[in-house]
Computed example of a mutant assay.
Amino acid sequence: MDNSAATPAAPSRTESPAGSTGARYDAVVVGGGPAGLQAALTLGRVHRSVLLLDSGRYRNETADAMHNFLTHDGTPPAELRAAARAELAAYDTVDVRAVGAERVAPDEGGYAVDLADGSTVRARGLVLATGLRDTLPDKPGLAGLWGREAAHCPFCHGHEYAGRSVAVLGAGPAAGHLTRIMAPVASRLTVLADGAPLEADLPDGVEVRSEPVVGFCRSAGGATVTFADGSTEEHAGVFVVPVSTQAAPFAEQLGLATLPSGGVEVDVMGRTSLPRVHAAGDMAHVAALPMPMASVLVAAASGMVAGAAMVAALL
């Protein structure tokens, strides 16, 4: 029996009220990373009309591979996004647009989204998946290493430095945490205190360079650190602790509740402080967790949960 003939027609998008512009969707998903892509897929699989907005900017865009993701360990992030968009193309109720959002606001029982191309779309609900922005320590050359020789997550990058020398920039408590995680991985660990007093409880065998750091550059073996006295030191990788903030202004525009971490506060279903506004990925933070989780796998999982919860909210 040919089951394709029994497939129900896709529900059409409704026209917006008189005087407004753009179609009205069940949900608009803002953000084209793993969280947003998965949320759109989850909504599309139960034939909800959904628009995915992809600005083309991603937190991990400087990384050449993602790790700690079962069956995708070592996959380039762009390859995963392309495969996900190809899968979404099979769902008639899912639209994908390569355009960013500029403003979101409550509108006639739903939400209006103003786009960078000057148009406006409306939806009954929003899934925000716009991620975080990392501000690195102000050290010349460090930004050029970010995502490869310089990283912040040992679960995502630590194994790639196995059996080699690894540095941690900063003298705060995070240096103790990072060096303890990396102790079984690296052959040598050095804390770059950068002229600050050491506040970290370090495991045995960790070296400390107290001199101020004046720059970094890529080298044959990884990254070369230059100190204020002119000396240099090479490491396979350098771990840093960036300051992470919301990459987009939408949480502030909507007045969503946030946590001291800077993440948008969500419950375990990805629901924010506003009805039918859900958040997913590393921009969102469940209070029971110590921090927003910076992981492609966790982001995708939270997108699925937020998408499913949005379906329930739309019923």
Rank of each mutant, 00 (worst) to 15 (best):
M1A: 11
D2C: 09
D2Q: 14
S4L: 15
A10F: 06
G19P: 12
T21W: 14
A23C: 05
Y25C: 04
A27D: 00
A27H: 02
V28D: 00
V29C: 01
V29H: 00
G36M: 05
V46G: 08
H47S: 06
H47K: 09
S49T: 10
L51W: 03
L52M: 09
L52E: 01
R57C: 04
R59S: 05
E61C: 06
A65L: 08
H67I: 08
F69R: 10
L70S: 14
G74F: 03
L80M: 11
R81E: 04
A84Q: 15
R85H: 12
Y91K: 09
Y91E: 02
D92Y: 03
V104G: 00
G109R: 09
G109D: 06
A112C: 09
A116K: 15
A116H: 15
A116D: 15
G118F: 10
T120G: 07
A123V: 05
L126H: 05
D134L: 11
T135S: 14
K139V: 15
A143S: 01
G144V: 02
G147H: 08
E149V: 08
A151F: 06
H152V: 01
C153K: 05
E160I: 05
Y161R: 08
A162D: 06
G163I: 09
S165N: 11
G170C: 13
P173T: 04
A175C: 10
L178N: 02
P184Q: 10
P184K: 12
S187W: 12
L189W: 06
T190I: 11
P197G: 13
E199N: 12
D201L: 12
D204H: 10
E207W: 09
E211G: 12
R218V: 03
A223R: 04
F227K: 07
F227G: 04
A228G: 13
A228F: 14
A228L: 14
E234Y: 12
F239M: 10
P242Q: 10
V243W: 05
S244Y: 01
P249M: 11
E252K: 06
G255S: 08
R276W: 04
H278G: 02
D282C: 10
A284H: 00
V286I: 09
P290D: 12
P290R: 13
P290F: 12
A300H: 11
M304F: 10
G307F: 00
G307N: 01
A308G: 15
V311C: 14
